[in-house]
Amino acid sequence: MTALTMPEGEAPILEVKDLATHFFTRAGVVKAVDGVSFSLNRGEIIGLVGESGSGKTVTGFSLIGLVDPPGRIVGGSVKLEGQELVGLDDAGLRKVRGARIAMVFQDPMMTLNPVLTIGQQMHLALAAHERVSKGAARVRSAEALTRVGIPDAASRLDAYPHQFSGGMRQRVAIAIALLHGTRVIIADEPTTALDVSIQAQILSEMRELAREMGTALVWISHDLSTVSTLASRILVMYAGRIVEEGPTAQVLRAPRHPYTAGLLRSLPAMAEPGTDLAQIPGTTPSLLNLPEGCPFRPRCERASELCAKNPPMTRAGERGYRCHHALEEAVSA
């Protein structure tokens, strides 16, 4: 799709096209991801932004083929370095996961196994993809931990997760994700559960690592300000679809979709001190049996009869948006 955003001559490392993941519940079909397309270049960082329930986490899990039942990828394509992942069998997916595409989760307190040492968990992750002796595994694990900024890494291998702080645990998780020189890392709100100073550290370290190792990042977050410091491009997700995309600076300066504009207005940094924060009226719609038309319509001040029809993706240069009444000018802060 976005051929314009790609440097010439280089194929994207990850290409997602019309990805759809639906959950078949007793109450009906939940279209958590409904036609998501984007591409990611080597070493690029893109931000996938949206409120809770917008489908961004499910998108992340769909990319590595880890959607739990009753959910299932019902259509579209995910190509990693040209290899199609949708429809690949379990054994094939297992070979890809952790080796070429990895994921870091939101809560570092829950992602590591509390009853195994860090060294044991890293050894298991290494052994999942290659034959490795215990000694060699320790050396490589210690290297990986040093790389993510864990001091005295060799001796920390024998420690258990509860002996690490939250930030350190997230670093361990990142180190595990990077063990095999992974090309793409999906980071699902990895700093949300951490306090602000640690957040900033992890953010800058992730950016450094991505640059050094040529790893591309899909940074999933509900926090526009975090993403804006990190990502070169932003995808805004609403009700299972991407409603706006474009280079970070442009999207932040002049959002075209009213939803993005609303998100920006609700940022504390954008508000006059002492005044109430602007908020988007209403809540995200239930994705269960979503009616036809623009899903943002009920909350949108610009909605008209036209919005009863689902707006297509409109492209203009590097920008793209799904709206019949796109904003033309920059919103005043």
Partner: peptide, 27 residues
């Protein structure tokens, strides 16, 4: 099986047999 620890192990490419024998059994 529903925990993040198991999901993370799967995301790291561990086989189901390894997850059951090394992660789950001890937990």
């Amino acid at each position: 099986m529903l925990s993040d620890a198991v999901k993370f192990a799967r995301a790291a490419g561990l086989s189901e047999a390894t997850i059951l024998s090394r992660h789950v059994l001890k937990l």
